[in-house]
């Protein structure tokens, strides 16, 4: 599985445009909110956590249609399923690569966006802390949605329609971890969601991959 992750990372780095596009979308979408609600620090600070979370969520969706789509179209998916790895492991490896090439970079530039949105400096570590499990959950659910919609005629439309409702609980607890006076509870909830999604989402994705290959 390590070899597969390394190969997929190499491919992702050669197609760096996907990561760059997600990061640019994240920054631009976050900036639009500042233009829309005006420069008032109080208003911006009030919505900053939610804006960063929603923008990260939407930006992470962008590369998902290529996660399995390219492999499905060029025949690589068959080779992956016949590589000796289980479909679960293939899906898990793809999830790891999605997080490393999209979730992690988004996490790294979340702080500057939060500063731009006038989020208090004391809240930024909490935002980043909530985004660590948040982006992982997003990669897990996104990978499952990408696998489920594989081969569908409107996969690019179907994928967000599957992912977005599923990610709402993580969004609620992630944003509230930053805004509430007691962040421990929402962070624990995010951890619990990650613990549930970690085994279940690749399982669902693997089953969907097998079905798509049939």
């Amino acid at each position: 599985m390590i070899a597969l992750i390394a190969r997929e990372l190499k491919l992702s780095l050669r197609h760096g445009a996907d990561t760059v596009a997600a990061l640019l979308f994240f920054i631009i979408a976050g900036t639009l909110f500042a233009f829309a609600v005006g420069p008032s620090p109080a208003i911006l600070a009030g919505i900053a956590a939610g804006v960063v979370w929603v923008c990260a969520l939407l930006a992470a969706l962008l590369p998902l249609d290529r996660l399995f789509g390219a492999d499905f179209e060029d025949g690589t998916l068959d080779l992956l399923l016949l590589s000796g790895l289980s479909a679960y492991e293939v899906a898990f490896a793809k999830t790891v690569v999605h997080w490393l090439t999209t979730g992690l970079p988004l996490l790294l530039i979340a702080a500057p966006l939060a500063v731009m949105l006038r989020m208090p400096e004391t809240k930024i570590p909490l935002l980043l802390l909530s985004l660590v499990p948040g982006t992982m959950i997003l990669s897990l659910l996104g990978t499952m949605a990408a696998a489920v919609s594989l081969g569908a005629r409107r996969a690019a439309v179907l994928m967000p329609l599957i992912t977005l409702p599923l990610i709402i609980p993580a969004l609620i607890f992630g944003a509230s971890a930053v805004t509430t006076a007691h962040p421990a509870a929402p962070l624990y909830m995010l951890g619990a969601m990650l613990a549930a999604a970690l085994p279940l989402a690749p399982l669902g994705a693997g089953t969907a991959l097998r079905a798509a290959a049939e």
């Binding site: 491919l11 050669r14 060029d74 025949g75 068959d78 399923l81 016949l82 479909a87 097998r210």
Partner: peptide, 23 residues
């Protein structure tokens, strides 16, 4: 019985080449 064990003895060439343009 399970695909990974069966796959370990198979070399597959489908009608698509599974060649990655970037590699």
């Amino acid at each position: 019985r399970d695909l990974p064990s069966h796959a370990a003895r198979i070399a597959w060439l489908g009608h698509l080449d599974a060649v990655k343009p970037a590699l």
